[in-house]
Nucleic acid binder design. Structure first.
Lengths: 216, 216
DNA sequence: GAATTAATTGAACGTTCGTTTTATTATTTG
DNA sequence: CAAATAATAAAACGAACGTTCAATTAATTC
């Protein structure tokens, strides 16, 4: 056998990516063999090498696109002119929405870093740093203005990101809590954690953010 | 060749455990081969099977002992009679101290769960639940008494644990912050996050806890 | 000091791994 | 409709995997 009827490179590549994210998230990168991946797609292992030169290239591509997507999502969601509390609320909402929506690729991007070569690891970590710096800047601004009481900006940023990203470990859509309930709770926990002064309940920040979005 | 001079079963087994924790933390369970492990210990791969019948048995043993150690540490550190804020402070301090001290085995126990058989996974998760229930109980008590303002006990417990355990991702001993500085900061973040009423700075909780420890 | 037990080696087993090569067929282009 | 190209299958490569087995030597027991 050779080329199959109806075969299409673009569709196959997309199917490979999707299957790879799911399989790596479930089995881990090392435990996902190219043969299992091929079987999931409905193809022979050799066919995968038309789209990704090596297994590591495939992993790296998935991770890079995940990180790019995260940064793009934040760039689209960030309020350009706003007080620190509003910016922080936007960051939290975007972060949680993105990570719940892309649970599997988040899992891959966070757990399989050790399987990357040094250079590629550096690239991914650089993107991660760019994204995290945004949160540190918000916390710093808020602390300088006096809206937040944060002892250590870097430590607080790491703590918040770990807390928020951790949502993918236990959250399952369609169970006890809805995405918006989870987001609202995390938002109020965040605001208390950073000692946000404007303590006007959760809706305050959401409302302000909505107003800002209209204002742009 | 056969038995080597000075060989000792107990010492070899201990060396295997230690090397396994380090290697699995660094390479991942799947990527750590029995041959690599044996080489690290300075022994042939076949010798490992005197101590652990399978690779998975080795992993499970490491995880079980980690979880047992965590629960024992908490049982030793918990204040028997104390207000919720003091109990929460003890929980946070114990959790962070334990996880920083056992970074590698924490990594293994959290990241390699998917390599366990169903039954063994259940056993580990059961132990984890026991430990997490302790935190939920503290949060519930604090909320009932009115010392904490917590919207959702279960969600808050998960958020706190993710936040605290995340310390092992970025913390490196001997860098910018000391363990006690990190612990103090996490403690005050936790207290703010749960809306603890008695807002008498970080030292308040530490002092109370010390007093309790003496009282026992 | 002989018999027993403890600890380990070295070789081998069958499987699976990532990857390459070659042949073959479907589709598109001219 | 022929030529070119795109997409795949089938088979094979050497290497590494977890694990087993028999042989061998060190330490202990009687």
């Amino acid at each position: 056998m050779a080329r199959t009827t109806g075969s299409d490179g673009e569709k196959t590549e997309a199917a490979v990516r999707e299957a790879a994210v799911n399989l790596i998230a479930r089995l881990g990168y090392e435990a996902m063999s190219m043969r299992k991946l091929a079987a999931e797609v409905g193809v022979q292992a050799a066919a995968l090498y038309r789209y990704f030169p090596t297994k590591e290239d495939l992993l790296f591509t998935l991770m890079r696109e995940h990180m790019e997507g995260l940064i793009e999502a934040w760039n689209a969601a960030r309020p350009v002119v706003a007080d620190p509390a509003t910016r922080l609320a936007a960051y939290v909402e975007n972060h949680i929405a993105f990570h719940i929506e892309r649970r599997h690729s988040t899992h891959v991007s966070n757990m399989e870093l050790r399987s990357l070569s040094h250079d590629r690891l550096t690239q991914i970590l650089r993107m991660r740093t760019i994204y995290e710096k945004e949160l540190r800047a918000i916390l710093r601004d808020g602390a300088e203005v006096g809206d937040f009481s944060v002892e250590d900006t870097g430590l607080t940023a790491m703590a918040l990101i770990q807390m928020m990203t951790g949502v993918i470990v236990w959250f399952r859509p369609g169970e006890r809590l809805s995405i918006s309930e989870v987001t609202a709770t995390y938002l109020s926990m965040t605001m208390r954690l950073v000692g946000a002064k404007a303590h006007g309940a959760t809706t305050t920040y959401s409302a302000r953010r909505a107003k800002d979005a209209v204002a742009l």
